[in-house]
Nucleic acid binder design. Structure first.
Length: 435
RNA sequence: GUGGACGUAGCUUAGCGGUUUAAAGCGUCGCUCUGUGGCAGCGAAGAUCGCCGGUUCAAAUCCGGUCGUCCACCCCA
């Protein structure tokens, strides 16, 4: 006999069990509603794309592509990758289907699973879901503001309270290369005061030193040349205009001059939305403030062109669904919904069991949720089950009732029972549940 | 990729300075109660103590490795 193997979910991946589904469904419902209101069309792209799409789009030097992508070789020899983010796939679809011929801007949204080979921890998994919104063909900061607003509204609809929006501009191909040079010129002579990671970053990605959490790096950074002081005229105006739009919409934002993002394709606007919330910790009954980025996004004016399309400006953002769910679970109103069935059908004996199948069908047609336990024969256990399900009524169909063409209706809280005509029961119950 | 904590029935945990049948609560199923639930009593099923190896007469318990979970760094949603 072979050894018993215990299968389990792969590292960083989880089952979503029936009792948690309502949380996800709630999010989908809110997202669909908000998207419909703002005129976004839903799009689904494959979970798997040409690996080169992400290498080129997301960027070959990003961690996501460099060390977190699940790649696979097909039998035909193609190199494919499990999508690690939404944007390149949606850009690809925009180009492939000639959406440039549609009235611009083209507004799209999507949600679904993404894959990143990472070391799992709080709010970080190898298979996770995002909600993603993208706008193509409009360079105005009004759309950036609308994207921010959309995610803010979604989180508000989900009853998030302490939301913080951080915005910044990281310039474009005009001004950023110049600023990078300026920054590394400032950092290089001071590298002894920086952490090891930042010393490495000076070469690889000097912008990232800006959001280092090490205190000594923050000290150095406070004297560093500011990105917003070195934006080109166009970027400066764009950013100014973004802030004006945000003021207009009353969104509670902060300008964080040190906010930079890890993906290569961002230009001008970048932003993140955080929720600050105290979480109960499992050990020692303590509390801890969780400040995870729930949403991240920005403008990516060069990406459509980079991936082979026309020079189309675009802007977008994505929210981490698991992170939202983990907050939702902490909130008290996120308890599981009330029991679905308000009535239970108990049967006794073969004859009534056969009759029950037909009766259940009548309830279905009348759109009345009714629970049963056809596998059990004793009335005791069926009533016990009905009790557990917290139904209001149990309809009891025994041998005698089938022969008489009647059915017994028991009110569960009081225990009072009455005998009804079998053909009237659906109507009668419908009437009573209305109250 | 680096570092820390932890892996015992479906769940929550006890046992963990080595020694016979690994314990409890919840849950599940059954009986007391042959057509009447919530309570109670009784009972059953369910764990080769994550896996592999080592030390030992003897390992859930000690040691090493491995896998997994959680957490932090890194990065990101």
């Amino acid at each position: 006999m072979s050894k018993k193997v215990k299968f389990q979910t792969p590292t960083g991946m989880h089952d979503i069990l029936p009792e948690d589904q309502f949380l996800y469904e709630k999010i989908w419902r809110v997202v669909d509603d908000v998207a419909a209101f703002y005129g976004f069309g839903k799009i689904e792209t494959p979970l798997v794309e040409d690996a080169a799409l992400f290498e080129k789009g997301t960027g070959g030097t990003t961690d996501i592509v460099e060390k977190q992508m699940y790649t696979l070789k097909t039998r035909g020899g193609d190199m494919l990758a499990l999508r690690p983010e939404f944007t390149p796939g949606i850009v690809r679809s925009y180009i492939q289907h000639g959406m440039i011929a549609l009235p611009q801007p083209v507004k799209l949204y999507a949600y679904g699973p993404l894959f990143r080979y990472e070391h799992p921890q709080a709010g970080r998994f190898r298979q996770f879901r995002q909600v993603d919104f993208e706008v193509f063909g409009e360079q105005s900061a009004a759309l950036d503001a609308q994207i921010i607003q959309i995610f803010y509204v979604i989180l508000k609809e989900l009853k998030f309270s302490h939301l913080i929006i951080e915005v910044n501009s990281i310039g474009d191909n005009q001004c950023r290369p110049y600023y990078k040079k300026l920054l590394s010129g400032y950092l290089r002579p001071r590298q002894n005061s920086l952490c090891a990671d930042c010393r490495r970053r000076i070469r690889e990605n000097p912008l990232r030193t800006l959001d280092c959490k090490e205190e000594k790096c923050q000290r150095v950074r406070s004297q560093a040349p500011q990105l917003i002081d070195h934006l080109c005229e166009e970027c400066k105006n764009h950013f100014k205009s973004l802030l004006e739009f945000l003021d207009e919409t009353d969104l509670p934002y902060h300008l964080d001059p040190y906010l930079v993002r890890g993906l290569d394709y961002y230009t001008k606007t970048v932003f993140e939305i955080f929720s600050e919330q105290t979480m109960k910790t499992t050990g020692e009954g303590g509390e801890v403030v969780q400040r995870n980025a729930l949403v991240g996004g920005g403008r990516y004016d060069g990406l459509v062109h980079l991936l082979g399309g026309k020079d189309v400006p675009a802007s977008g953002a994505a929210a981490g669904v698991e992170r939202i769910v983990s907050f939702l679970k902490e909130m008290e109103f996120a308890a599981a919904p009330a029991p679905v069935a308000r009535i239970f059908l108990a049967q006794l004996g073969d004859l009534s069991k056969k009759k029950s199948l037909r009766l259940l069908e009548e309830f279905r047609k009348a759109k009345i949720q009714i629970a049963e336990s056809l596998g059990r024969d004793s009335l005791r256990t069926q009533l016990a089950r009905a009790d557990k399900l917290e139904v209001e009524y149990t309809a009891i169909l025994g041998q005698k009732e089938v022969l008489d063409g009647t059915i017994v209706l028991r009110k569960m809280d009081t225990g009072e029972q009455e005998t009804l005509k079998l053909e009237k029961v659906v109507e009668e119950i419908k009437e009573r549940l209305r109250k």
